[in-house]
Write a protein that binds this DNA or RNA. Structure first.
Lengths: 360, 360
DNA sequence: CTGTTAGCGCGTTCAT
DNA sequence: ATGAACGCGCTAACAG
């Protein structure tokens, strides 16, 4: 996609020559109307149009002014994945909202392979970055840091020194678990997001949890476990199944496995609504009634959560607001002290109920 | 968000001086490894890292090379709306897929108010634009055209001279209507997308249809009407309710209105799945059974269409593929002759059935 | 209100 | 294999 339009070569200089003024005056005609007489300005604009001038070249301007009018957005994982994840979408929506209010463009940077990451992030013509849920030691994060531009960090509570926005994942998860425990559930299982960025799935051991690259996964796990221990149950007995890419299918498989184990868990704590929905499908497949036989609690409260049957009990986090605030902090060039911890709220719907009494 | 980092002022020149070579050599070290000895290159890179050099400044490079490595995406309507529309999301996902394969970034340009549009689009540092479903005479379209960059046009069959990708909206709608007609439905109603970009809702008259700024709305309508007329029914009797912003809520209201009219329609043709889902909600509210009392056919086949109950009968269009192909055409700088018309397919599910025989 | 003078940081000839 | 010179298009100071 090269641009080889000889037509486009109309430049400030050309039109200055045509009108018989200096380049500066022409530039002013576009950018500082108050710096020259209306007539002259009008004349210049007219000639510019006639000559097919397209307005100040963005790259020239950017080089000169040092800013671009765009903010960069870096997701973990591939874009096509991000755009399939309701969580990311909601976040994006929030970012977009403040962007358009501020007339800022949004540059979405694909982060695919280690080789390319460097190139792509270094090349990004942006005034700052929003970094969304990157794993702890990712290449992408390193590259973003190198740019030494303003950064806002989202869902990466371990990254210090930058304004950030996140939720109290531990507390939110704690409440989800406490909800089931209060309903007398004794046998819980956890369906988790990724701990490490290696696309492994299956049963998780403690070491993997401690080495987690995704702090939010770690903290949600901690919240679940804290509640379980507080209730006097043995946390070690709680199985944790890790799913790849927040995918419903992966959770479906994980839940199938969990629900076939004995003793069968009566409650499933899912770290996202998508995972929870996968678990619901598994329950359906096995002929288990929700919530009579099994309770499921999700996380996020994506739009779908309240549309499926049974409606999903979940912990709501303000995803769109998260995006909106992140963009705001970036555009304001806020200091790290302006970081925000957003509120979450347990939303009890139909997928959770009293633990079955006459279990097998 | 200004960048006032004195640190960043490390430039090619500085590091050239530090190493004791010329700027060119340093530039080559980054961009043309074969132009200098490996040792020297290594040395330069090392010094560069030490000095905190961030790699070639993207704006300088862009100005010099004339391309940016990013493609622009212009949506009709506000971004926050676009990110709430499953259709747009699916499209975006497709665009993202080929973008990341090509390591191109994606600049999403907010198109809010007429004043700002010019600024924002002129400022966009991109190598080309994908233009998605802009109304016929929109300001945004004018501004994009002015840039004289490569363009790919999506869902705007009236725009000539550029590579474009779209579907046969008339034919697709025709099949949707034919499906209901074959099921003996005699009283149909249409819930439509916008004809004009004025956020008007309600009953549509012929003039509005003929003046449509959104050709795809017009063509879908035409497809419905063609089928209806072919079946020997009177097309004038078919009510058309226009909804704003492809919103479910708006469709809910429209359907409520339609279903309260006498004689009550037995079939609703919705120009999108979201509208169809709004109609289903209205039917539910009125205590109408679908498909026993009412059949509904959507358009698009968004993911939700097959998840709700009753599962939605609809016309599938390959939304993600649309995005993917659009981006491909743009990146290849394809000529207008490479335009693509994508296939659609009627998907019969549970929301359509035989027309009720013993109607009131 | 207008024009002159300087770069912004980089990539690319064309010499050597 | 290396460096000198040039210009991409623009805007910010400053001087008239």
């Amino acid at each position: 996609m090269e641009q080889d339009n000889p037509l486009e070569s109309v430049t400030l200089k050309d039109i200055a020559k045509a009108v018989g003024v200096s380049r500066t005056t022409v530039s002013n005609a576009f950018n500082r109307p108050d710096q020259l007489s209306p007539d002259l300005r009008q004349k210049i604009l007219t000639v510019a149009t006639q000559m097919g001038y397209l307005g100040p070249n963005p790259m020239g301007r950017m080089l000169r002014t040092g800013h671009t009018g765009a903010i960069g957005l870096v997701f973990h994982d591939s874009l096509s994945y991000a755009f399939a994840d309701p969580t990311a979408i909601a976040f994006l929506q929030g970012v977009a909202r403040t962007c358009e209010a501020a007339q800022a463009s949004l540059l979405i940077v694909p982060v695919v392979e280690d080789v390319a990451v460097q190139q792509t992030i270094q090349q990004a013509a942006v005034d700052g970055f929003i970094v969304y849920c990157l794993p702890n030691q990712s290449d992408a994060m390193t590259q973003v840091l190198r740019r030494q531009l303003p950064i806002v960090v989202v869902d990466q509570p371990n990254v210090q020194g930058f304004p950030s926005v996140y939720i109290d994942d531990r507390q939110a998860a704690y409440e989800a678990a406490a909800h089931l425990l209060k309903l007398n559930h004794q046998r819980l299982a956890i369906i988790s997001l990724e701990f490490l960025d290696d696309y492994c799935t299956g049963l998780v051991d403690l070491q993997r949890i401690q080495n987690a690259d995704f702090p939010i996964t770690q903290r949600r796990w901690q919240g679940y476990v804290d509640a379980i221990q507080e209730a006097g149950l043995e946390a070690d007995a709680v199985l944790v199944e890790e799913c790849a890419g927040n995918s419903e299918e992966s959770a479906f498989q994980a839940a199938l496995k969990l629900l076939k184990s004995t003793p069968r868990p009566t409650g499933i704590l899912a770290m996202s609504d998508r995972l929870a929905i996968g678990a619901l499908r598994a329950a359906e497949q096995l002929g288990l009634k929700v919530p009579a036989d099994l309770s499921v609690v999700g996380f996020d409260d994506i739009p779908l959560a309240s549309r499926i049957r049974p409606r999903l009990t979940t912990v709501r986090q303000p995803l769109t607001e998260k995006g909106s605030i992140a963009a705001e902090l970036l555009l304001k060039n806020a200091p790290a002290s302006k970081s925000r911890i957003l509120k979450t709220q347990l939303v009890v719907r139909e997928s959770s109920g009293l633990a079955p009494t006459s279990a097998e």
